[in-house]
Amino acid sequence: MAAGTVSTKRVHPVRSFLVGDEPMPPALWGIIFFIFSEIMFFSGLIAAMLALHADTLHWEPTNGGHRVHGDELRPILFTVMLVSTSVPMQIAAFAIRKGNRRLMLWMMGIVLVIGTAFIINQGFEWGEAMFGISDGTYAASFYTLTGFHGAHVIGGLVFILAQFVRGLLGHFDAKRNTAVEAATLYWHFVGFVWLLVIFPLVFFLS
């Protein structure tokens, strides 16, 4: 299409926001399908948690230990931190669509730092929890869900780190940025699932 003419092909605004106006390359389709399968995996775990919660007798930790550590401020803080990293990650994707590699690297750096802080905090939470994995159905659900989510956060961070290093090496420009878009979509998924995992576990069901 000649420069200056307006594209007659309408692109859905959500699609345009998430992956830009270019035709999606196979790799982006692939990551989207893969994210659907991941959503089904967490659906299975979360469904199990909800079903087990129906049996209130066995739900509370059997050793009398209460929830993670009593105060709700810390999980709220880290939840907000993790979910809000979707913003810099998306800004990174916007930046590279315009060819701004420098801004992309800064934004990815922010995501990497906050994501790592989240994982470290998660390690402390496990260490401070007043129950073990064998102390009832709440405890088992807690460790299983936060554990698998944590593994996915680490996976997402490795994914982003790889693109960060590639960016440092001079990869990516306005045309070639599929891996950044894919990492961004995956990171949105990791944050979204945390909302589904942490809110029932910490605020409603404990």
Partner: peptide, 19 residues
């Protein structure tokens, strides 16, 4: 559907080895 089986399988594994 397969990821849902995976969820059941990992819960089974955790059940046998810890929970």
């Amino acid at each position: 559907s397969t990821p849902v089986l995976a969820a059941a399988l990992v819960m089974g594994f955790i059940d046998r080895n810890g929970a």
